[in-house]
């Protein structure tokens, strides 16, 4: 039972990975294959920052998020923007190239050693709820994920910027005619994507180990969360992430090393049986 609850908590983290990806997928109809490598890169930045300043990783996380926002904004303007409007292939090829570059830059800078972020006393702390002992860190992860999802959906639903994003997502050409600077919207969205991922990276690093090669797997988990939930649905991505986390936890109950495999299999089965994702169930009712 506790394994499954923990799985759901990790799943919230997958949802957070996926949220950024869902933003760019819904908006630009393209995927950033280097998404996971940016998550790992953010984890390294957090590690370096907290070692350098001698403070808790959570203290540096907001700064890393801002840095990654700028990285995302610049990356979109300088590189990814040039691939748009030329079909589905160029963004895939360019971001795959980016993924290889990032992995090897991290290898050069930080070596292949496995690292993690020291959560301090937070790591072992737990509280008792309804007879179950729950870790404070997983609970905090869940709370932060919910807060970010809530903030994102609030921004999308009721601000001018959110309206501009939704309009651009529906038809970027029409949005452009209405006076929306779509290139700027794309760049801000990419910045937000990486900023959200940076927050997720902080919690990822405090829970588990990372090294320069663990990025692609993060990207797959993120994408699976988006598809499981249903493309175009913000809360669906969280639900998809939690389903993925539960599947992996259930798999690891059978055999500790089966976790990711069972998660992938559940993803493929859902893809086959329910192409619209979990949210298509709700719409049908």
């Amino acid at each position: 039972m506790e394994v499954l609850i923990n799985g759901a908590f990790i799943g919230a983290l997958y949802g957070l990975y996926g949220l950024g990806l869902a933003l760019t997928l819904g908006l630009m109809r393209q995927i950033n294959l280097a998404h996971g490598d940016f998550i790992v890169f953010s984890a390294y930045l957090t590690l370096q920052g907290s070692l350098l300043l001698g403070v808790h990783p959570l203290m540096v996380l907001p700064v890393v998020a801002v840095v990654m926002f700028v990285v995302g904004f610049v990356l979109q303007r300088l590189v990814i923007e040039r691939t748009l409007g030329r079909g589905e292939m160029p963004p895939i090829l360019v971001t795959f190239g980016l993924s290889i570059i990032l992995q090897n830059v991290m290898l050069e800078l930080f070596s292949a050693d496995t690292r993690n972020l020291n959560p301090g006393p937070l790591g072992a702390a737990s509280i008792e709820i309804a007879g179950l002992s729950l870790g404070v860190l997983p609970l905090l992860t869940l709370a932060v994920s919910f807060a970010i999802f809530w903030a994102t959906s609030a921004v999308f639903g009721s601000t001018k910027f959110g309206r501009a994003i939704r309009a651009t997502s529906d038809s970027d050409q029409t949005a452009q005619l209405m006076g929306i600077n779509t290139s700027r919207i794309f760049a801000v969205a990419m910045g937000l994507t990486l900023a959200i991922s940076a927050i997720a990276a902080g919690f990822y690093g405090m829970r588990g180990n990372f090294d320069p090669s663990t990025g692609p797997e993060r990207m797959l988990f993120a994408f699976e969360a988006v598809i499981l939930g249903g493309v175009g649905s913000i809360w669906g991505t969280l639900a998809g992430g939690i389903l993925l986390g539960l599947s992996q936890a259930a798999g690891s109950l059978i055999n500790p090393s089966y976790g990711p495999l069972v998660g992938h299999l559940v993803f493929l089965v859902v893809l086959l049986a329910l192409p619209g994702g979990l949210m298509s169930l709700r719409r049908r009712q």
């Binding site: 090829l93 795959f96 980016l98 290889i100 570059i101 090897n104 830059v105």
Partner: peptide
Amino acid sequence: ILLGLMAI
């Protein structure tokens, strides 16, 4: 890194 840069 060079291969990736060239591909991009």
